[in-house]
Design a binder for these strands. Structure first.
Length: 550
RNA sequence: UGACCCAUGGUGUAAUGGUAACACUACUGAUUUUGGUUCAGUCAUUUAAGGUUCGAAUCCUUAUGGGUCAACCA
């Protein structure tokens, strides 16, 4: 914390602006369109915008960019607010571009009166045809030189609802030969007879992004309007409108959007995954959405840490999802209580164990001295992991094998004496003896074993469903592959284990609390848990340092 | 056959004309009642060619490579 970290390019700009006295405080905004759920890319923007004002002084608004009523819904507004809060940020003002529709309309009138905007009767196709291409200039619309009076009249009638959708637009009068396509008389307003989620039927004309975003920034006195690289060409128009309208000069700055390996990040693609049922919903734990990651068990602290570690810059990037997983493990290792769960059980009978049962004690978290202990019932019949036993083990196999000894976590050392199989040769039972004087915390046996296994007492075990997730796509960058990105979906991204055996304390597992299933990974209770049973989502596995055969 | 943005280990980000570094990954080893954690270490980097300079990742030129722009989406 006290360590001097170098500033990223935005921090340098802000630092200079503050030092020069250009601003006494900075104002940023997080401007989502309420037409989808937030994802890890948005988290980058949230952490950036809120982080900047926290660091340099000032505040951040949450502003919904709700200028397109046909795609936007209140459901999304609510999920976005919940996600931002969950990430740990609180906005100064909750605002909507639709709050400014009256002002924006006045701005349009002003532009018309300045002779800088006109009503165009051309169709969408005609406008596209007259637009030119990046290498060829466009041509002027036949309506480009209408009188100010006629434009005023027509625009007012557009607002009054006299014209059908698509019949007319309001366009800025700039330059149809401009090298920047966005400056070739961009559309400012279009007719949409559609109810808006907030203004209902008040309007039938709606401003376009370019005539709403910068103006909203300006109205809110946003000092640094931060967006992603694809808006670089918009900056010229952003500044042109501010200049002509003579309004508060917010400034736009762009950074490279965040990409992650083995997933897709565009809202369009994510929506497709949801609609076509490749995932169970926006909050499917395999989704890179905030809600998906939350359900998966990722913590807000881990996501914030990830964003900080990655940093920001202006070059295209694709961050290794392994870094995100590292941040998750790093956080969870400190806070997750340890529990024992056997995924694929095989029965072990301890032939010389004479008690009916006993309670043993185990620490909840070796990383947390104040984490306390819990009791776990132990008995002469336990389950261990089928993969923790091998009849013919390779060298350096520290687990159970004929004649070999292992420690049962927090309990005793056992030795494998006999293997029982069915007719088909499957192992049905492993017979062991235990060292009575090897009890954890009281070990006087003098025996040292290399391996420690997790286990669950047969008669005390409870069953649980486990949902194990793998990456959603088989390739690092599905969007850059040939063909449809959906061709690269990993068919095995969800594996369900139905009959796992868990220690009884997990019966009272709490939502939003992470557990480390010892030697297996981090898990969190899923919302589908209920009367039919408890269900856990695998958040992320433990780092696995064991390579068989070495 | 245009304009604009970008180019540093496998990945991400620093170095702001003065010894190319940090993190993740990978690999070694030590510790360990989780083959986890922790600790120690190793491998690995300036797209290319010119130029300016005592000195260039940094400034200039050109080339190459990647990205963006022709929605009544944002």
């Amino acid at each position: 914390m006290s360590e001097e970290k170098s500033l990223n390019f935005l921090e340098e700009i802000i630092d200079a602006d503050l030092k020069s006295g250009k601003y006494s405080q900075i104002v940023t905004r997080f401007p989502p369109e309420p037409n989808g759920y937030l994802h890890i890319g948005h988290a980058t923007s949230i952490v950036l915008n809120f982080g900047l004002t926290k660091k340099f002084g000032g505040y951040t608004n949450l502003r919904f960019d709700d200028t397109n009523p046909v795609t936007e819904e209140t459901e999304y507004v609510e999920s976005i607010k919940a996600d931002v809060r969950w990430l740990g940020f609180e906005w100064k003002n909750e605002l909507y571009a639709s709050d400014y529709f009256d002002t924006l309309y006045e701005y349009a009138i002003k532009l018309i009166k300045l002779g800088l905007a006109y009503v165009d009767d051309s169709s969408s196709e005609e406008i596209a045809a007259m637009k030119g291409t990046p290498t060829e200039p466009g041509t002027n619309s036949p309506n480009r030189d209408r009188s100010i009076e006629e434009n005023l009249d027509l625009f007012q009638r557009m607002r009054a609802g006299e014209f059908p959708d698509g019949s007319r637009t309001l366009r800025a009068k700039i330059d149809m030969a401009h090298v920047n396509m966005l400056m070739r008389d961009p559309i400012l307003y279009r007719i949409k007879h559609a109810p808006h989620h907030r203004t209902a039927d008040k309007w039938c004309i709606y401003p376009m992004y370019d005539f709403a975003h910068g103006q909203s920034d300006s109205i809110e006195n946003v000092t640094h309007s931060i967006c992603t690289l694809e808006f670089v060409p918009h900056r010229e128009l952003y500044n042109w409108l501010i200049e002509k309208l003579e309004i508060y000069p917010s400034r736009q700055y762009e950074f490279a959007r965040r990409n992650l390996t083995y997933t897709v990040m565009s809202k369009r693609k994510l929506l497709q995954l949801v609609n076509e049922k490749h995932v169970s919903g926006w909050d499917d734990p395999r989704m890179p959405t905030i809600s998906g990651m939350r359900r998966r068990g990722y913590t807000a602290a881990a996501i914030r840490e990830f964003c900080d570690r990655v940093g920001i810059a202006k070059r295209d990037n694709i961050v290794d999802v392994g870094l995100l997983e590292f941040c998750v493990r790093e956080d969870l290792n400190k806070i997750a209580q340890r529990r024992m769960v056997v995924f694929d059980p095989v029965k072990v009978v301890i032939t010389n164990y004479e008690l009916d049962e006993e309670m043993i004690h185990s620490e909840n978290n070796p990383e947390d001295p104040n984490g306390g202990e819990r009791e776990i019932p132990f008995s002469g019949e336990i389950y261990i992991e089928r993969e923790d036993f091998m009849e013919n083990p390779p060298k350096k196999y520290f687990r159970l094998a004929p004649g070999q000894m292992v420690r049962l976590k927090s309990a005793y050392i056992i030795k494998c004496e006999e293997v029982i199989k069915d007719e088909a040769g499957n192992i049905t039972e492993i017979r062991c003896t235990y060292l009575p004087n090897s009890k954890s915390g009281n070990d006087t046996s003098g025996v040292h074993v290399k391996g420690t296994l997790h286990w669950v007492s047969v008669k005390h075990a409870i069953t649980a469903e486990l949902r194990i997730y793998d990456r959603l796509f088989r390739v690092e960058d599905p969007s850059s592959e040939e063909g449809d990105f959906k061709d690269y979906i990993n068919p095995n991204s969800l594996q369900v284990i139905h009959g796992a055996f868990a220690e009884p304390s997990l019966k009272t597992a709490k939502f939003d609390e992470s557990y480390q299933f010892i030697r297996k990974g981090y898990f969190v209770l899923d919302k589908d848990s209920g009367t039919s049973g408890i269900i856990f989502n695998k958040t992320v596995g433990l780092k696995d340092g064991w390579k068989p055969g070495s």
